[in-house]
Amino acid sequence: MATQKKSYAARLGVLAVALSLVTACLLGGTMAKYVTEVTGTGSATVAKWSFKANGGTESFDVALTDATQAGVAANKIAPGAKGSFDIDMSAADSEVGVDYTIAFSGTDNLPTGLKFYSDAAGNTVITEFDAVSTGTIAAAGTKKETIYWSWPTTGSDVNDTAAGTAADGAAKTFTIKVTGTQQKPTATPAP
């Protein structure tokens, strides 16, 4: 009988352990918990870029003429001529600031006595043609750079005469390159 009691006790013990495991599994799978899933979207709106020089996005023309120079054919220049031309730069439709550089090339095609100046009085001769002028335009802003020029009569008579003798009626051209680059963004300070 003692063996039978042990057998029942052992069976009851095993049954109790089995019921505990089954109950734990059932309760573990059926326990309630809060769950929330939120879905969002990301977006990026690109700032608009727009840069123009003298109204053009690819090219523009400038002619060196002096309408006040007496005794010279219309739309031609000779020693004693002077004038200026404007480069109107626009970032009016841009949503970013612009750093600009104005550069000249091919100026060796022009008469050797012809000089460019950054001031109307002719005190500051432009000698660095890779960066005739540089500056910044704010987003949605505009800026005008005026370049002055003159062909003084105090230059070399030999060179001036050679330029006039070689003149074949065709315009002597040089290139004006205006480059607009997005202004480098400044770092936003950490909050």
Rank of each mutant, 00 (worst) to 15 (best):
I102G: 10
D93Y: 12
A70F: 01
S7Y: 15
A139W: 04
I126M: 11
I77G: 09
V98Q: 08
E95L: 10
Y34W: 04
T57V: 03
A167G: 13
N109T: 08
A171F: 14
T101E: 04
A171T: 09
T3W: 15
A120E: 12
F104P: 13
A138C: 06
T188V: 11
I87Q: 05
F116Q: 00
A9P: 04
F104L: 00
D130A: 15
K143R: 11
G113F: 08
T41K: 11
N159S: 13
D130V: 09
G106Q: 03
A138M: 08
I176N: 11
A24K: 04
W149A: 01
G180M: 00
I126L: 11
C25I: 03
G71C: 03
W49P: 03
V46L: 07
K177Q: 05
K5R: 10
G122V: 07
Q182N: 14
T57E: 06
P185M: 07
K177L: 01
G56N: 08
A53R: 02
I77A: 10
A18L: 08
P79I: 00
T107H: 06
V72E: 00
A190Y: 06
K52H: 04
T173F: 12
G80A: 05
D168P: 04
T188I: 06
I126V: 14
G29H: 11
T181W: 09
C25K: 10
T134W: 12
A53L: 00
G80R: 01
A67S: 09
T30L: 13
P191H: 02
D157K: 12
T112G: 14
A67E: 06
T165I: 11
T188M: 06
P185G: 13
V132P: 00
M89D: 00
Y100E: 00
V35M: 11
A2T: 08
V178H: 09
V125F: 10
T124K: 15
M89K: 05
E95P: 10
A92T: 08
Q183E: 10
T146L: 03
A103T: 03
G122S: 11
K33R: 05
V38S: 15
L110S: 11
A103C: 08
G122H: 11
T3G: 15
S133F: 14
V178W: 01
A70W: 00
D119S: 14
A24T: 09
K82A: 02
V14P: 10
N159D: 15
V72A: 06
T107M: 03
Q182A: 15
A120T: 09
K144M: 02
K172G: 08
T179K: 09
G28E: 04
T165Y: 14
T68R: 05
K6R: 08
G55K: 05
